[in-house]
């Protein structure tokens, strides 16, 4: 039960993008086409789940026994960067189309604050191993959800008559705000 709650909380009620406002850069940058948004979401989910898993292991079997918890930021960033490299190679090999569509945003997953935030949340909330993995996966799903919803809206928006000063990023940020408001409605789903 607890695991399900963690998953739903990470994916919907405490959505990383729309409630914590983490990872806004790819959220704005890659959300103009549904296909690449989904690809980006998948890549980030993969990295998030792996990052949560690996950093949990590093934290519990290396940093805590050796009493060097202060290294948590540095090691986590190192881990995330390496994982992103791995994902990049993997995507380049398996799907050159997706690789080109994601472009610069793929290496930018490295500096996606949602992922570093995730690994730090895991430490902060004292999650057990399985909880951490589910939390990472849930956060990734939430990120994908936000990205895909946004991309869907933006694709429709292509045909809308947007006032000139709001074209592009302006209207995107306004939609992001409205989406965040809508996601606040999920707040009552879990009371904690």
């Amino acid at each position: 039960m607890n695991l399900i709650l963690i998953f739903i909380a990470a994916a919907v009620t405490n959505n990383f993008v729309l409630t914590y406002f983490l990872g806004i850069c790819p959220f704005i940058g890659v959300s103009n086409r549904l296909e690449s948004a989904f690809g980006m979401g998948m890549a980030t989910t993969f990295v998030m789940t792996l990052a949560a898993t690996v950093t949990w292991l590093i934290n519990h079997y290396l940093l805590i026994p050796l009493h060097i918890e202060f290294l948590e930021y540095v090691t986590f960033i190192l881990t995330i960067a390496s994982l992103v490299q791995l994902v990049e190679m993997f995507i380049r090999k398996t799907s050159p189309e997706l690789y080109r569509a994601l472009g610069i945003y793929l290496p930018l997953i490295t500096t996606n604050c949602a992922i570093l935030g995730l690994t730090l949340f895991v430490v902060l909330r004292n999650y057990a191993f399985l909880e951490a993995v589910i939390f990472g996966f849930g956060a990734g799903v939430g990120f994908t959800l936000a990205l895909v919803v946004m991309a869907g809206i933006r694709e429709e928006l292509e045909f809308a008559d947007v006032p000139k000063p709001l074209k592009g990023t302006g209207i995107t940020l306004i939609i992001a705000g409205l989406l965040a408001l809508a996601f606040m409605g999920f707040g009552g789903l879990i009371s904690s």
Binding site: I58, H67, I68, T75, L78, T79, M89
Partner: peptide, 24 residues
């Protein structure tokens, strides 16, 4: 300890990435 941990981790990821770059 801190230095050795960082060196160890760095080396570990470097090896993993080096292998991966050959495989992929």
């Amino acid at each position: 300890t801190a230095t050795l941990t960082m060196v160890g981790l760095g080396a570990f990821f470097a090896i993993v990435l080096a292998i991966a770059s050959q495989k992929l």
